[in-house]
Amino acid sequence: MRADTSELDAFAARVGRAPTRAESLVSSVLTASAAHIATEAKTRAPVRTGFLRGSIAVVPTGRLSVAVGATANYAAYVEQGTSRMAARPYMRPALEKELPALKTALHGIAGLVAQ
């Protein structure tokens, strides 16, 4: 008696490709989300000279990680405030706006890879 294992073989092949496929998809989603966060932060950043807004950038920090931040030396003071200046957040609201879409995309990837 011989069993048809073609479906099992196809499944094994998909599982074997899953880590590479997942990594590629997650990298793409993270890069896109980081770009959305940076764009939103630039929109929300208070502008006096434009230096803070212009210093907001996305920097890849690893295979599956990116950082979004501002390089202006006073960026944290604007975001968090000081004892003499109220906070004018721009980065956190941008992150909070993008987070639901990022979570949805990552859950979608998990579903795709599991198939």
Score class of each variant (00 low, 15 high):
Arg2Glu: 12
Ala10Val: 02
Ala12Trp: 04
Thr43Glu: 04
Ala67Gly: 10
Leu112His: 05
Glu96Asp: 15
Glu40Arg: 13
Ser65Asp: 12
Met91Thr: 04
Ala110Gln: 10
Ala22Met: 13
Ala67Thr: 15
Arg63Ala: 14
Leu112Ile: 09
Gly16Gln: 11
Ala13Lys: 13
Ile109Pro: 06
Met1Gly: 14
Pro46Met: 02
Val66Lys: 09
Leu52Gln: 01
Val47Glu: 08
Val29Asp: 11
Gln115Leu: 11
Phe51Gln: 14
Ala45His: 01
Pro89Asp: 02
Leu64Ile: 09
Leu99Pro: 01
Val68Gln: 10
Gln115Asp: 11
Glu79Gln: 14
Asp9Gln: 14
Ile37Trp: 05
Leu95Met: 11
Gly16Glu: 10
Ala10Thr: 09
Gly81Glu: 06
Ala45Cys: 04
Val113Lys: 06
Pro93Arg: 03
Gly50Tyr: 09
Ala32Val: 04
Ala34Tyr: 07
Met91His: 05
Lys42Leu: 02
Pro93Phe: 03
Thr49Asn: 09
Thr5Asn: 13
Ser55Leu: 06
Glu40Phe: 00
Lys42Ile: 00
Leu52Pro: 03
Thr31Tyr: 03
Val58Gly: 07
Glu23Ile: 02
Lys42Gln: 15
Leu30Ser: 07
Ala41Lys: 01
Val29Asn: 04
Ile56Cys: 06
Gly54Ile: 03
Thr39Ala: 15
Thr104Lys: 14
Ser28Pro: 01
Thr5Asp: 13
Arg2Val: 12
Val15Ser: 04
Gly108Asn: 11
Leu102Cys: 03
Lys103Pro: 00
Val59Glu: 15
Val29Phe: 03
Leu95Ile: 12
Gly16Leu: 08
Gln115His: 09
Ala32Thr: 14
Pro100His: 07
Arg92Gly: 00
Val15Ala: 14
Arg88Glu: 12
Arg44Glu: 02
Pro60Phe: 05
Val113Pro: 05
His107Thr: 13
Arg17Tyr: 03
Gly111Thr: 08
Arg14Ala: 12
Arg14Glu: 08
Thr20Gly: 13
Ala35Trp: 01
Glu7Val: 10
Arg2Asn: 10
Phe11Leu: 15
